[in-house]
Design a protein around this nucleic acid. Structure first.
Lengths: 217, 217
DNA sequence: CTTGATTCCGAAACAGTGTTCCGAATAGCA
DNA sequence: TGCTATTCGGAACACTGTTTCGGAATCAAG
């Protein structure tokens, strides 16, 4: 029987797409090499030829996830309100996590113990971080936020990640209203608190609480 | 040969302890039933007799993690500064995550796809949440924070979780100074922002950004 | 068109998991 | 002392990741 397609053109994409589909449809536990190969209408060794390893496949899924998230960010358009734009980015992040929950798990809370993120993997996340840093910088230039842009961006991203994690785990409550209320409360409070530069942050903290280097165990 | 110990007294504890040790020493990927049984100096079926399932074993590890975290919280003593006390709780949480990183991963970012948290599992986390709610309530009564205590507690916990996740992933930077700076910045800003009740949170957000029910995909 | 080398896929084989079955040894009780 | 019930141990299954090898399809040359 004739080979259905060409030699090795879009096979890699087909396998990657199949892996993402299985991940989204059946969860992380169902992502086996056999299933991926079957879904991509190819064989197991082909997967190994293309990705070397299952960890390699997962790594590519990881990259693809950040590409897709970055693609969503690029679709957002700017207005003249930097704070609203920043919140729109957060909302986009939130909806991405909601709609691709398993993929987000791979990206942010590594359900695969065999994925050992190296510098290269961390680099993939830098575009997302840089995007947020850019929006934060706009806010700072507009006087809506203060302090260092990178620091603030990390805080914002951490808050978004933590909230997304809690939402996915069902810890933020069952009703949509309470979940939304807590998202709003969190970002409004944090952005309000960041309106002015933290004046004596180091002093205040060292004085008032042990959030410094290594608290005694 | 005589059996070394009694029949079934501390065997369950021994197995659980062995699982925790393997988890801490060799990572989540090394937590196999065979290894646990060998480390506990028992047999594989004994593990299944005691926990029914590997998921059951992991679930007990999960519970034990929250028990230990709660134990740390109980060791903290109150001062007359509610805000400092709340920050001390956060610092304790942070050090717990740092010192038990793999266990924290099991508790908060489920690396085990086969652990399907039901209401019972969620209940185990409620003591931790209630503890934080209590501290937040003290802050509210002292006028240091405003708004609803439960809402604020969720925000605080989400922020702590997000920061811990980013710290564990190495996203907060490599130098201790920058990591600490970002923790301090985050909590100072958020707590400052929560000093007064968010006056028109709903209105402001609905007006200024799409952080509400379901943003269009 | 035939033929050959090359490249790739497919089935089967290995090691290591989670899980279970059955025999055997032990503890408690009469 | 003997019985019984319970629990532990070794060995067996099904399924995973991973590799190896044989064969088929592809392209180029004669």
């Amino acid at each position: 029987m004739p080979r259905p397609k060409q030699r090795t053109p879009a096979l890699r994409d087909r396998v990657l797409r199949a892996a993402l589909a299985i991940l989204a449809d059946e969860g992380a536990g169902a992502l086996t090499t056999r299933k991926v190969a079957a879904a991509a209408a190819t064989s197991i060794p082909a997967v190994y030829e293309l990705f070397g390893d299952k960890a390699g496949l997962v790594r590519e899924v990881y990259f693809e996830g950040f590409r897709r998230l970055g693609g969503r960010f690029d679709e957002l358009d700017h207005t003249d309100d930097p704070r609203a734009d920043l919140l729109a980015v957060i909302a986009s992040y939130r909806s991405f996590v909601r709609e691709n929950s398993v993929l987000a798990g791979v990206m942010f809370s590594r359900p695969f113990a065999d994925l050992d993120p190296s510098a290269k993997e961390l680099g993939a996340t830098s575009t997302v971080r840089k995007f947020i840093v850019g929006h934060v910088r706009r806010c700072i230039e507009a006087g809506v936020l203060a302090s260092d842009a990178t620091d603030v961006a990390h805080v914002v991203l951490a808050l978004a990640q933590g909230l997304a994690l809690q939402e996915a785990a069902g810890w933020l409550g069952t009703s949509k209203a309470s979940v939304n209320r807590r998202w709003m409360l969190a970002f409004n409070a944090t952005l309000d608190g960041l309106r002015e530069a933290q004046p004596d942050a180091r002093q205040r903290l060292v004085r008032s609480s042990p959030l410094h280097p290594c608290a005694p165990r």
